[in-house]
Nucleic acid binder design. Structure first.
Lengths: 226, 226
DNA sequence: CAGTATCCTCGAGGATACTG
DNA sequence: CAGTATCCTCGAGGATACTG
């Protein structure tokens, strides 16, 4: 959309205001760089549209398309990196002003697992391999997902990797989402049993250290406390 | 647009990502409160769409519809005011990263005069009445507009108010826009004659004090200097 | 794995005329 | 002055099938 106004806000709206664009930028900021990785994190978008939007973002100078290990990857340019504070300001505004639980249509275990993967504290992962199985119970959703970490590099898969499982995390999508978002304390969820861990003491301890939170979790906690 | 993601950035995009919405919010922030005032500042929008967007913004809690002097007015709620830093962050990002002159389609003397009116330094206006006539020369545009101030309250009109004129400001839309935006120093424009003032010494002096700049002018100057 | 080509749908929003 | 009602258009983007 061109607005025909010589105004920085209009320019920002031209570049970021198309459907999905801001979410694509967010995902790249949070560590999604491959086409199918972005695609998986944006249920509802079509491959055609994602492809078009990526081309626009490259054209507008926010993203750079690189060839890496034989595959295209999308990375923020300096111009795109410079946008980070503004995207955070928008998100923090939303956190402060639109509290509330996820709607039914916002409970998606696949997307949640992607987000968890992207925010894992890699330093806190054990050396070698770690396999955690997430089990989602709930109304209609009882899905499983495996988070497999090899040498501090986590990867989610939805088919049994047939490795020995070090840790089972049993919860429902809503609870795990609330914890990830910073709206429910992990300690409280563990205490009340809405998240249950199964594994050695060490594996359970480790979990609370490598499990990472939404970049807006701090703001959410502040909003809840304030 | 609903994205179906429990994420603050998605929420912000849902509320602000529709066409025109961010520009409407910007205009209210900069002092437009009446329907026709907003309408005049957004060439290309339809009355139907503006009306719909205002309803959405009220529904999302950013704007409040008030009855004032027998007319509806739209004002920012606390939630809307809280958005100001994020909107500024977006605009400043655009200023830093998308320098450049206005395109041909971005030269609109009516809109420019509205913006000038909204940003006049009211305190620097003289007591009583001041009448300034803006004369735009240029390729196809030679328009006039009057800025009439009564008791520190400026108002633009495009029909001769038939008051005695204290000051004539002759320029072209592009130059005045660049000056307003902070991309060309007023002093330089006056020196090189791309803005010419006509009036008493006092009226001309006064002009450089009551003429206000875009909220992004400081950022633009920094971007040019840096 | 990362897209593209083609066809087709449907709903956002424009045009126009109207109103308290 | 601040909108609304109605009809209609058209283009963004979905579905599907395909490819280097």
């Amino acid at each position: 959309m061109r607005y025909g106004q010589y105004c920085p806000v209009a320019k920002a709206a031209e570049v970021l205001g198309e459907r999905w664009t801001l979410l694509i930028v967010r995902d790249v900021m949070e560590g999604a760089h491959r086409f199918n990785d972005l695609y998986a994190g944006l249920p509802g978008i079509s491959r055609t549209l994602l492809s078009g939007r990526l081309r626009q973002l490259v054209g507008d100078g926010l993203l750079e398309r690189r060839e890496a290990n034989g595959h295209p990857e999308y990375w923020l340019t300096p111009l795109g990196l410079d946008l980070q504070p503004a995207v955070f300001a928008l998100g923090e505004w939303a956190v402060r002003n639109y509290g509330g639980d996820p709607g039914r249509d916002e409970l998606n275990p696949e997307v949640l697992m992607l987000w968890i993967e992207r925010h894992v504290n890699r330093d806190a992962l054990p050396d070698g391999r770690l396999v955690a199985r997430f089990e989602f119970r709930g109304s209609r959703q009882h899905t499983r997902a495996w988070l497999v970490s090899q040498d501090h590099s986590p990867r989610v898969c939805h088919d049994d990797p047939r490795f020995e499982v070090d840790l089972v995390v049993a919860s429902d999508v809503r609870t795990l989402h609330l914890v990830f978002a910073g709206r429910l304390a992990m300690s409280a969820a563990l205490r009340e049993g809405s998240i249950a861990l199964e594994g050695t003491m060490q594996a359970r301890r480790s979990f609370t250290r490598w499990f990472g939170y939404s970049p807006f979790a701090t703001a959410a906690r502040e909003a809840l406390a304030g």
